[in-house]
Simulated scan of single mutants.
Amino acid sequence: MYDNTCKFIAETFPADIATWLLGEPISLTKLEPSELSAEPIRADSLIFLESEEIILHAEFQTAPKPDIPFRMADYRLRAYRRYPGKQMRQIVIYLRQSGSDLVYQNTFEFDNFRSSFEVIRLWEQPTEIFLQSPGLFPFAVLSQTNNADNVLRQVAGQIERISNNREQSNVAASTAMLAGLVLSKDLINSVLRQEIMRESVIYQEIEAEAMQKGIQQGIQQGVQQGIQQGVQQGVQQGVQQEAVSFVLRLLKRRLGEVKPELQAQIQGLSVQQLEELGEALLDFQSESDLVAWLEKL
């Protein structure tokens, strides 16, 4: 959840991210991991952004993992193979404070091979950095501060001054998600207005994922236990109807608008088929993948 929120921020506010990580507001566009290699890439925590001259590879990590140095070297070689003339900046951003030595590792080497990358530990970064632009507001609570409550209130004040409703919603929801790493849910909800966050794409996506988990648990463990897991609304309105709505939202997020005839097919699927589609669509790259999946039924 936290890694995906960071990816969403980077995709939505690339200029702010570039200013922070590269030192200048370079115009960046998203580079799909599949463009670097035919081999699978774990895309849950990384984002690739590119301009004509440079590729920015950022890894957002909640906790350190021993394989990070190898992964950074692997991605660097893949990028060089695809774009040998471009510079590349690789940065691992750790979100939650850790005493592990792994958060200080910035090289991968064996024999005569050596690859380096940068590391940012958010809890060591001055708070002021993240109060300069909307795309950085969500990281402020995780910065170097002894009073995260007060920082959240400062950010909330900044968010209230954002005039674009969609931008305001996205920033508020992203801030709430990341603040959950260091602050209680009750405090976050008392500072950030729920009605603003509900319009955010990332808020709706995470809400949909939570509903999917609830539906799956409800199917596997029975309606009563499903209610206890947070799918009261799904049970009241019909599990199948809620599952259809959830799958269509995920497909729109993944592929864009779904054709009416495809929507009609999806509305006729059983709950089990909808659950299977919910898992399969994470690998879809285009509408043709959806069509092919439906044709197999």
Score class of each variant (00 low, 15 high):
residue 268 G to P: 05
residue 211 M to I: 11
residue 65 K to C: 10
residue 9 I to N: 11
residue 196 I to G: 02
residue 153 R to T: 09
residue 262 L to N: 02
residue 236 Q to Y: 08
residue 269 L to H: 03
residue 235 V to F: 07
residue 49 L to I: 00
residue 255 L to N: 10
residue 2 Y to R: 14
residue 30 K to R: 11
residue 172 A to R: 11
residue 243 A to K: 07
residue 150 N to F: 06
residue 59 E to G: 01
residue 35 E to G: 04
residue 235 V to K: 05
residue 60 F to K: 07
residue 273 Q to L: 10
residue 3 D to Q: 15
residue 148 A to P: 09
residue 81 R to M: 04
residue 160 E to P: 07
residue 283 D to A: 13
residue 82 R to T: 15
residue 83 Y to D: 01
residue 28 L to I: 06
residue 297 L to I: 14
residue 232 Q to C: 11
residue 275 E to N: 10
residue 286 S to E: 13
residue 213 K to C: 06
residue 72 M to A: 12
residue 283 D to M: 05
residue 70 F to R: 06
residue 84 P to H: 12
residue 168 Q to W: 00
residue 47 I to C: 06
residue 83 Y to A: 08
residue 22 L to I: 01
residue 295 E to K: 15
residue 285 Q to R: 14
residue 160 E to V: 02
residue 18 A to P: 02
residue 154 Q to F: 06
residue 47 I to L: 02
residue 110 F to G: 07
residue 198 R to S: 04
residue 54 I to E: 06
residue 128 E to M: 05
residue 246 F to I: 10
residue 279 E to Y: 07
residue 128 E to F: 07
residue 42 R to S: 06
residue 162 I to W: 00
residue 52 E to M: 08
residue 258 V to A: 11
residue 62 T to S: 07
residue 181 L to V: 03
residue 83 Y to I: 08
residue 90 Q to L: 02
residue 275 E to S: 09
residue 175 T to C: 03
residue 70 F to G: 12
residue 128 E to A: 15
residue 5 T to R: 11
residue 232 Q to N: 13
residue 206 I to D: 09
residue 72 M to E: 15
residue 160 E to S: 14
residue 77 L to Y: 11
residue 86 K to D: 07
residue 222 G to T: 07
residue 97 Q to I: 01
residue 83 Y to L: 02
residue 217 Q to P: 01
residue 262 L to A: 04
residue 203 Y to E: 15
residue 2 Y to Q: 11
residue 179 A to W: 01
residue 114 R to S: 14
residue 101 D to A: 09
residue 144 Q to W: 02
residue 129 I to Q: 13
residue 175 T to G: 03
residue 2 Y to A: 04
residue 113 F to P: 08
residue 271 V to I: 13
residue 104 Y to N: 09
residue 8 F to Q: 14
residue 128 E to P: 12
residue 156 A to N: 11
residue 196 I to N: 04
residue 154 Q to H: 08
residue 115 S to G: 09
residue 86 K to S: 03
residue 215 I to G: 01
residue 200 S to V: 04
residue 214 G to A: 15
residue 114 R to H: 10
residue 42 R to E: 12
residue 230 G to C: 14
residue 152 L to W: 10
residue 134 P to L: 06
residue 177 M to E: 15
residue 74 D to M: 10
residue 96 R to Q: 12
residue 11 E to F: 05
residue 240 Q to D: 05
residue 44 D to T: 12
residue 30 K to G: 05
residue 68 I to A: 08
residue 15 A to N: 00
residue 244 V to H: 04
residue 141 V to W: 09
residue 12 T to M: 04
residue 240 Q to M: 08
residue 280 A to Q: 01
residue 256 G to Y: 00
residue 43 A to W: 02
residue 259 K to M: 05
residue 240 Q to L: 03
residue 233 Q to T: 10
residue 91 I to C: 11
residue 277 L to H: 04
residue 132 Q to P: 07
residue 38 A to S: 08
residue 193 R to M: 01
residue 185 K to C: 03
residue 246 F to G: 00
residue 163 S to N: 09
residue 234 G to K: 04
residue 283 D to R: 08
residue 54 I to T: 13
residue 72 M to N: 14
residue 14 P to K: 00
residue 127 T to G: 01
residue 103 V to K: 12
residue 40 P to S: 06
residue 270 S to F: 10
residue 94 Y to T: 03
residue 151 V to H: 02
residue 227 I to M: 09
residue 5 T to A: 13
residue 283 D to V: 06
residue 130 F to L: 06
residue 167 E to W: 00
residue 219 I to C: 02
